[in-house]
């Protein structure tokens, strides 16, 4: 169980999650410091006021805009999980690739501070005592998640290809 640390609206762009002016910073070890750099939330993160495992809850189309992968890696670094009604395509793929924990939950209703739990294909809001269905990942994407991200997944394929040739 963990708290909703940040509640956001629809169409949160990657410019908000990871502003363009920090794009020269690319390493997943360095990007977290700029997560939501223009929001107060960034200060909370840096002050360690947000517990790892906390949730960000957003409305539709989370991660729209630029394909910058920093927008996913900067959240992974803080151990955040994202629940949104749906995600923009590239952001979703990036999240899967870099191992960001994200959940598609079209009916989600939660406020900042609510306690959530993910169980049996549902997001359960312990504060409001309601639960909301999760849209399962397509199988092909689940395979990458199960491998621990795209790097280990691709590594396996590279080795296989080498074995064959």
């Amino acid at each position: 169980m963990a708290k909703v640390a940040l509640k956001l609206g629809a169409d949160v762009s990657t410019d908000i999650i990871y502003p363009g002016r920090f794009m020269a910073t690319v390493l997943p070890t360095e990007t977290p410091q700029y997560a939501f750099a223009d929001l107060e939330f960034n200060k909370k993160l840096k002050a360690k006021e947000v517990a790892p495992g906390s949730f960000i809850v957003a409305d539709k189309n989370f991660g729209c805009g630029s394909s910058r992968e920093q927008a996913a890696s900067c959240l992974t670094g803080w151990g955040l999980k994202v629940i949104a009604k749906n995600f923009a395509r590239i952001f979703m793929q990036n999240s899967i690739n870099v191992g960001l924990n994200m959940v598609i939950c079209p009916g989600i209703e939660a406020s900042e501070g609510d306690e959530l739990e993910i169980e049996n294909g549902k997001v359960v809001n312990k504060t409001s005592n309601r639960s909301f269905d999760i849209v399962p990942m397509p199988k092909a994407r689940q395979a990458i998640i199960d491998a621990g991200g795209l790097i280990p997944f691709a590594r396996k394929l590279v080795l296989q290809a080498k074995g064959r040739s």
Partner: peptide, 8 residues
């Protein structure tokens, strides 16, 4: 696509 996907 993202950078990790491009790496693949």
């Amino acid at each position: 696509i993202g950078a990790t996907e491009m790496a693949a």
